[in-house]
């Protein structure tokens, strides 16, 4: 589908233009989601998109679905209630790196552990964008943030490993540059039965880029292109070529009992015992 048709079909055009900065990649990530939804043929009325607070989370205001813009960090918890109460709905969560892994970190690991059928999309720009460039749990060690004027002292989270370790049954990482695989991961995540997480490496030219002298938005996109390698290719690369490279790809795909199905199973079992 052409972009203009996608916009017409899935965006709340009255709310456009969006508030994101020129060069921000959140639009690419949001568009990729809409392409995935379109290719899967999801019913807009049966699809819910829940977000927290942050630049990333503002995406829901532009998307013509059932949308909930919740409190900072708590989107997954709200989404858990929506999904468990209404198992027939597709529930997708959009979260920033801070939203998902700092203030919302507890909900992330527990949603993953429960293996509840939610799709979490983390738009990771490695910074707190909305509040003006403070470091986040994914800001690289020694990078600058307004609250890390001498460089971040901490070590960052690897969100893929975090989600996998917590029990997510579908985990992938894409980038705002590699859009075709990104759409594929979004589709696979939404179709997956169980907790799925896709990390999308985004760029924030305004607050990450300026402080860290990462160059223009175009230069930052080039950095995504040049430094991210597909995991299967990375595995075949000789050690010396791996220097400075990051991986994207699908990392976890497994079937485990899903929370809502298990719970509904209990309801049905109890009903059977009553009828018997």
């Amino acid at each position: 589908m052409r972009s203009s048709q996608l916009v017409e079909k899935y965006f709340r055009t009255k709310n456009l233009p969006h508030i994101w900065c020129p060069g921000c990649s959140l639009g690419i990530a949001t568009r990729s989601l809409v392409v995935a939804i379109d290719e899967l043929g999801l019913d807009k009325n049966k699809t819910v998109i829940v977000s927290g607070i942050g630049c990333s989370s503002r995406a829901v205001g532009y998307l013509d679905f059932n949308t909930i813009h919740t409190t900072h960090g708590r989107a997954l918890a709200f989404a858990t209630g929506v999904k468990l109460a209404n198992p027939e709905l597709h529930v997708i969560v959009i979260s920033g790196d801070g939203d998902a892994s700092a203030i919302g970190g507890n909900h992330l690991i527990h949603a993953a552990r429960r293996n509840i059928d939610l799709t979490l999309l983390i738009f990771n720009n490695n910074i707190y964008g909305m509040t003006g460039g403070q470091f986040s749990p994914t800001t690289p060690h020694a990078a600058l943030g307004t609250t890390a004027p001498f460089g971040v002292v901490e070590q960052p989270f690897d969100l893929v490993k975090l989600a996998e370790g917590a029990g997510a049954t579908y985990v992938a990482r894409g980038t705002a540059f590699h859009v075709n695989p990104l759409v594929k991961y979004y589709k696979n995540a939404i179709e997956h039965k169980g907790f799925s997480m896709v990390e999308t490496i985004c760029i924030c030219p305004t607050y990450y880029g300026r402080q860290n002298k990462s160059g223009t938005a175009v230069q930052m996109m080039h950095w995504l292109k040049d430094s991210f390698v597909l995991n299967t290719a990375y595995d075949k690369m000789p050690e010396e070529k791996r220097q400075g490279k990051h991986v994207y790809g699908e990392f976890v795909k497994k079937d485990l009992p899903e929370y809502v199905e298990e719970y509904v199973g209990i309801i049905e079992r109890l009903k059977g015992e009553e009828d018997a």
Binding site: T80, G81, V82, A85, N106, H110, I267
Partner: peptide, 25 residues
Amino acid sequence: GGKFIQMEDEISGIAAAIGASISGT
């Protein structure tokens, strides 16, 4: 036919209840 869930803390406890109510329960 209703649902109970023990959440990871009270913050998510109320958040999930709000989510369920928004959606009609």
